[in-house]
């Protein structure tokens, strides 16, 4: 019944680790802020973000890498934070859902990301427990492919589960995001 517990004691990235107490010190950048923490070697990246950094926007849906709710961006790639150990993220750059909107020093939102705006316009989600994972997934593939077809969108988000919507509104939301981001780029180009 218990989720499989990770037993690795060594960071893939060669961080400082103590073989005696099974902990290691990691340094990474999360949402643009540098953090250094001593962590248990078996701590998942998801638990690290949620419990050690209090970034509870990243959600755990299945803890075995299927549902995608815990997806975060690690060095420009969408990864499942339930399947990655915190020590494996040593030295990396992480973006979570909390890092999408532009905020002031107090963490108040100044402006939301076009993907967030688009999902709101399209009524993308219902309970939205899965939303952080979808948004981080979409963010990454729109970086790679800013003008996807509907079929491509469907395939790209098919690694994330949503139980509420039947996906149609999420696909519509990504299409809206593509439009908004293209318009923003055109505007940016004109300004330049």
């Amino acid at each position: 019944m218990n989720s499989p517990s990770a037993t690795a004691t060594q960071s893939a990235m060669g961080s400082l680790h103590s073989p005696i107490d099974g902990t290691a010190t990691i340094e990474l950048e999360v949402n643009g802020v540098g953090v250094t923490r001593r962590v248990n070697a078996r701590l998942s990246l998801a638990d690290f973000l949620r419990e050690r950094l209090d970034l509870t926007g990243t959600h755990l849906g299945c803890e075995h890498g299927v549902c995608g709710a815990c997806t975060v961006v690690l060095n420009d790639e969408a990864v499942r934070s339930c399947l990655i150990l915190a020590v494996q993220a040593d030295g990396s750059r992480i973006t979570t859902i909390e890092g999408l909107a532009e905020t002031d020093h107090d963490g108040q939102i100044i402006s939301i990301h076009p993907i967030q705006r688009a999902m709101q316009e399209a009524h993308g989600f219902q309970c939205a427990f899965c939303a952080p994972g979808f948004l981080m997934t979409a963010l990454c593939f729109l970086e790679r492919n800013p003008a996807p077809t509907r079929a491509q969108i469907r395939e790209e988000i098919s690694g994330n589960l949503c139980r509420c919507t039947g996906y149609q509104s999420i696909i519509a939301g990504v299409e809206t995001a593509v439009e908004i981001m293209a318009a923003d780029r055109r505007e940016g180009a004109q300004d330049a």
Binding site: R50, T56, L100, A101, I112, Q116, A128, A131, P132
Partner: peptide
């Protein structure tokens, strides 16, 4: 609801 749920500022029981 989306103002908090799409920005990671919701409050679920696990939080």
């Amino acid at each position: 609801e989306d103002q908090r749920l799409l920005t990671g500022r919701g409050s679920f029981v696990a939080d």
